[in-house]
Amino acid sequence: MINYPCIFKLYGDDELIYLSSKDDLSSEFESLICHEEDYLIDSTGQAFKVQQDNKDEFSFVKIGTPVSTQTLTELIQAHEFSKQKCA
């Protein structure tokens, strides 16, 4: 079970997508093509792999142990730095 809010980490990109609710998640995933290395981190730090079936429906599978505070901080720093490079 995903605890909101959460963030979505795109493979090969420093961008993070903030999702405040299940509705936000559904809305974002309507137009998203997922890579097998994309993952979601919920408010408890638990990571989930995204699985897409043939009908464009998504499910989430818990992976590993929760993401450490240090790792999460590094992801956020990289995200913020990438926003500055674009400005």
Rank of each mutant, 00 (worst) to 15 (best):
C6R: 00
D13F: 08
C6I: 04
V50R: 02
V50A: 03
D24S: 11
L10M: 07
A47K: 14
L10F: 06
S82K: 14
G12A: 13
Y11P: 05
S27E: 07
T69S: 10
Q77N: 14
C34V: 10
Y4P: 01
T44G: 04
L19E: 00
D14E: 15
L40Q: 01
T44Y: 09
L19G: 01
T44K: 15
P5W: 09
S21W: 11
F58D: 00
H79D: 10
T69P: 11
F29L: 15
I7G: 01
E30C: 05
Y39D: 00
V67Y: 06
L19H: 01
A87W: 06
E37D: 14
I2K: 01
S27Q: 09
A47C: 11
S26V: 05
Y11I: 04
I2E: 03
M1S: 13
F48Q: 04
E36R: 07
K85D: 03
V50N: 01
T69A: 12
L19P: 01
T65W: 04
V50I: 15
C6Y: 01
C6E: 00
A87M: 08
E36L: 04
I41A: 01
L32T: 13
Q84N: 11
T73Q: 13
Y11V: 05
E37S: 13
D24I: 01
I33Q: 15
A78P: 02
I33V: 15
E15W: 05
E80I: 08
V61W: 03
I17L: 15
K22E: 15
T69G: 12
P5A: 10
I2M: 08
P5T: 09
D53H: 14
E36Y: 09
Q84E: 07
S27G: 03
E36Q: 08
I7D: 01
N54P: 06
S43W: 11
V50Q: 01
I7R: 03
